[in-house]
């Protein structure tokens, strides 16, 4: 056999191995999601039976989704609550961490590092341990059992990480680009918006995704701070679905809830993933 043929075979074998391993790994990750999805299309009675085979044998039906939609005051209220809480959390977190990150990165002021360490160190406090004081503060502010109240809590929880993220992002942008913008006549805010923001977008995307996922999925604070059923967010509502009504659990509804909760997260990832692509600052300097 010629050396060339051997090389070709070796390359083919390497490619096969690469693809098989990749395929198996991705199957491992996709399987539970696919399972949930298949179950969510079973009828209510079928979903309650032993789970094999995982796909609906009595035909696809959207009955579970309809059941879920009827739940409590209606699924769209909960989804709306969750969405507005998550969106507001993202917007406020991004806005504050952008300005704070820029300030920490570029300005010199007394006690700067002490303040930064103080902010970061709040990450070390498990927030479950301060739920009671948080609850009391919100009550004092008249914000307990309101969505803005819970948004404030989420923003507070995410800011340390987000400010850290944004400071790093700004630190990575060379100072001379900013100087160039100043020579070009840009005011601080114009410079931030037109020059700096596009350069720290990967950082913003990261902050946004984390803030969204965490506030979208957060359960404990929402459970404790929101007492009115109409204010519930999806995780609280899902806990109620999962604990069942009158002793029976609608597994189909649970799985369709999982699908519903996953969809925006997936969408956000797909939307923002291109900002993870590195090298946006390539060519600015050196």
């Amino acid at each position: 056999m010629s050396r060339k043929a051997a090389a070709t075979r070796r390359r083919a074998w390497a490619a096969t191995r690469y693809h098989v391993i990749g395929l198996v790994t991705s199957l491992l990750f996709i399987a539970p999601i696919a399972w949930s999805m298949l179950v969510s299309f079973k009828s209510t009675t079928e979903a309650a039976r032993p789970p094999l085979p995982p796909w609906p044998v009595e035909g696809f039906t959207t009955q579970s989704y309809e059941n879920l939609a009827q739940y409590g005051v209606g699924i769209w209220t909960y989804a709306g609550n969750s969405l507005s809480v998550a969106a507001a959390t993202v917007v406020v977190t991004v806005f504050i961490s952008l300005l704070a990150g820029y300030g920490f990165s570029r300005f010199q002021f007394p006690l700067k590092n002490a303040l930064f360490v103080l902010i970061i160190s709040t990450v070390m406090i498990p927030f479950q341990s301060i739920l009671t004081p948080l609850f009391l503060i919100l009550t004092r502010l008249g914000l307990q059992n309101t969505l803005p109240g819970i948004v404030l809590i989420y923003v507070t929880l995410h800011l340390p990480f987000s400010i850290f993220m944004m400071r790093n992002a700004f630190d990575a942008v060379p100072k001379e680009i900013e100087d160039a913008a100043r020579v070009d006549g840009a005011s601080v805010f114009l410079m931030l918006r037109r020059v700096m923001l596009p350069l720290v977008l990967p950082g913003v995307a990261t902050v946004a995704i984390f803030a969204f996922l965490a506030s979208w999925n957060e359960f404990l604070a929402a459970l404790i701070l929101l007492t009115d059923q109409r204010k519930y967010t999806l995780p609280v509502m899902m806990a109620a679905v999962r604990s069942g009504q009158f002793g029976t659990i609608d597994w189909g509804a649970v799985q369709s809830g999982v699908m519903l909760m996953m969809a925006p997260c997936l969408g956000l990832f797909l939307l923002l993933q291109r900002y993870y692509i590195r090298g946006l600052t390539a060519g600015a300097v050196k």
Binding site: P174, R182, V183, G185, G283, A284, K286
Partner: peptide
């Protein structure tokens, strides 16, 4: 006075071009 109002232009060691803008946009920004 602000840099932009002094009638100066500066060329930096690291070029300091705006990486997210095309060359035309870089020139036009000011």
């Amino acid at each position: 006075l602000d840099p932009a109002k002094r009638g100066i232009a500066m060329v930096f060691q690291s070029y300091a071009l705006y990486p997210h803008m095309s060359v035309r946009e870089n020139l036009a920004f000011g």
